[in-house]
């Protein structure tokens, strides 16, 4: 009698393993086709002069010429510099404001839900729409920002925020931070909720005021959250594309060009797939290195 279930199991085992594999295959096929293949394919492609569409020029191996060309291209280095500048500017802006907002909202009792909903609203706004709105705010000369600054400082010379190579990247930083800080805020809120209340009580017994409580309780307790937030924000910042593509096309004078935009221009506009594959590989290596370096650095700071 007792053996019956086991028999039943073995009878079904062929069907079972068929089902198991059947459930696994779709993902494996999709990942192989749409992630592995293009990733592996980009290595040989990067050594060729392959075009996007068939062209009269025969495809041939050109060795390291793509890489040499990229590494000696001033635009590429400027794109890298821009991406790093963007990252350096957006990390404190976005994460700082997110932390501030989270601390304010954390113990807020009155209108808690409404306030949270309002603070989080920019995050659900699609980036394309964010660019539409901010294009009008930055608009020259009739935009909101220009007229606002002029009301405060009457002698202010209006600036074409997105058309000026000194301000364009900073303008992109602010609109990006506005759109995305909600994500970091929510993560910080979750982190704040995990800090035991006793710690604050103990700090208050020791006579710590509001600022000291933040510096000695909140901030150290949020260390892991901060590491996570900084890592995620950095990865996102290195992939900057949509805003730049719609608003400035990498201009003026390449001051907002980014890595992804550089790849897009080479591979899609210029149809040089081999060349853009080489820059894809360089981008992958860069993102990988930056994330790894950041991890190690933050881990060391933790110890």
């Amino acid at each position: 009698m007792r053996k019956e279930p086991k028999n039943k199991l073995s009878r079904f085992s062929l069907l079972e393993s068929f089902q198991e594999l059947g459930m696994l295959t779709p993902a494996l096929i999709l990942l192989a086709l749409f992630v592995m293949t293009p990733f592996i394919m980009s290595i040989p492609l990067s050594f060729t002069n392959q075009k996007l569409f068939p062209s009269p020029i025969p495809v041939k191996l050109i060795g390291l010429r793509n890489y040499r060309q990229i590494l000696s291209d001033g635009e590429f280095w400027q794109a890298i510099k821009n991406v790093f500048l963007f990252t350096l500017m957006i990390l404190p802006t976005q994460c700082g404001f997110a932390l501030l907002a989270a601390c304010f909202l954390n113990k807020q009792a009155i209108m808690k839900k409404t306030l949270r909903a309002m603070f989080f609203l920019p995050f659900i706004t699609p980036m394309v729409i964010v660019t539409v709105i901010w294009a009008t705010i930055y608009k020259y000369p009739t935009g909101l920002l220009n007229s606002f600054v002029q009301t405060v400082i009457p002698r202010f010379q209006m600036i074409d925020w997105l058309g000026n190579r000194h301000t364009a990247l900073t303008a992109i930083v602010f609109l990006s931070a506005w759109q995305a800080y909600g994500f970091q805020m929510v993560i910080y809120l979750a982190g704040l909720q995990n800090i035991p209340e006793e710690l604050y009580e103990a700090a208050a017994i020791d006579g710590a005021g509001g600022w000291k409580r933040f510096a000695y309780v909140t901030w150290p307790s949020l260390k892991n959250t901060t590491i996570f937030v900084l890592t995620i924000t950095t990865i996102q910042a290195l992939k900057l594309f949509t805003q730049v593509n719609i608003l400035t096309h990498g201009g003026p004078l390449g001051s907002t060009n980014t890595l992804v935009h550089y790849m897009y221009e080479a591979g899609f506009i210029g149809q040089k797939i081999g060349y853009s594959a080489a820059s894809s590989i360089l981008m992958f290596l860069l993102v990988f290195t930056v994330v790894l370096a950041q991890r190690l650095l933050l881990k060391r700071m933790e110890d």
């Binding site: 293009p38 990733f39 980009s42 990865i235 992939k239 853009s276 992958f284 990988f288």
Partner: peptide
Amino acid sequence: LYIIPAEAIMLPLLFL
């Protein structure tokens, strides 16, 4: 596979 940024494979994927 998660470490491969989608943006880094988009142009080879377009070619594919």
